[in-house]
Design a binder for these strands. Structure first.
Lengths: 192, 192
DNA sequence: CTCGCTTGTCTAGCGGTGCTAGGGTCGAGC
DNA sequence: GCTCGACCCTAGCACCGCTAGACAAGCGAG
């Protein structure tokens, strides 16, 4: 038994290594540089080993996305609980979201820009994704305003943040004015 | 002279054919299916011909993006001028934007999701892109509210629309509630 | 009208991609 | 100590974007 257990542990460990290495490589050189050959070389195994853990490159991206979603949810909750008052909380939430996207561009891409083969807005959406949305909902629900469905409000607010994040990072929006954009967004959307 | 002129005309015509075919193929089967080989086959020339018109695949995407930007600007202006009253106009603008993205997903991807090698928010940003932004600005500027810079307001509103467009199309947001989302966005952001 | 040359196109191929079939090795369990 | 199965690697497939070099067509000069 103990032998199989050890092998199992090693497998789990190697899978973590694959995901961590993919993330690191993507963060250093962009997802285009994450090829199965390079990834295999970095983990010091041959290519087919990757396919004994994941169905394909897409699933590796998906794994990075799930890891990122968990981290983002934690970051959002931490920011929200450190602020008091709805207005302050929502502003902190927004800033944290944009900062996460800016500091972890490859992870953000894995979550929202690339195809990680994950289900969304769906019953079999993976838990970390639902949880990240829930983290947004917790703080945003209280500023939705009367008669506005909290879920709907969260979707709209989230979409605005997502738009700001992606357009800024792609060079479509000049990055200097991020702060006034956040101020405007919070002032107008949130009902305090 | 006339011979050269004819050749020049044929070149221009062929270039249009390339862009139109790329767009059509992308719209039918997605940008992944737009390979230089398939594209060459569809226009009934060999691959290297593409490279006598464009520096590479990226530039072809860029050409589709510019075409799309011009169309989008026209659509936005048409919608805006057909509506009277700032509130109605902004709502129509938003709906038109989202509809354009939904009906021309490949073009929208070329404009905002893929790398077409175009400059943005920059002095040497191509005219069609500046003009599309200008089309938004024309209607949105009048509802920015006192003391809010119209350009900044337009950026934020645009980002929200972009977020809704991409998240919806990627399956991150259920498509049914698009209309109430637009209503909420316009009600809160626009100062009428 | 013929010839040389420019211009334009095609065939073939390079180095890369994601992914997989099949052989070989090594160690666990009898 | 031997057998057998689990595991991993080498090698290769079909495809990608892109390009070098051969080749043909058609123009302008004589």
């Amino acid at each position: 038994m103990s032998v199989q257990e050890r092998k199992q542990r090693e497998r789990v460990e190697r899978e973590r290594l694959i995901v961590a290495t993919a993330r690191e490589l993507a963060e250093q050189q962009g997802w285009d540089a994450v090829t199965t050959r390079r990834l295999a070389e970095r983990i010091e195994y041959s290519q087919p080993v990757l396919y004994s853990h994941f169905r394909g490159k897409r699933e590796i991206i998906g794994a990075v996305a799930l890891e990122g979603a968990a981290e983002m949810a934690a970051a959002l909750r931490a920011a929200a609980s450190a602020a008091d008052g709805p207005r302050t909380r929502v502003a902190a939430l927004a800033r944290t979201y944009l900062e996460f996207a800016a500091r972890n561009p490859a992870v953000y891409d894995a979550m929202f820009e690339l195809d990680g083969g994950l289900a969304f807005a769906n019953d079999d959406t993976p838990q970390p994704l639902k949880d990240a949305f829930a983290a947004l909902l917790e703080s945003l629900g209280e500023v939705a305003g009367d008669g506005v469905h909290p879920g709907l409000f969260t979707e709209v607010f989230w979409a605005a943040l997502h738009g700001l994040a992606t357009l800024t990072r792609a060079g479509r929006l000049p990055p200097e004015d991020t702060e006034p954009r956040v101020e405007l967004l919070v002032d107008r959307l949130a009902v305090v």
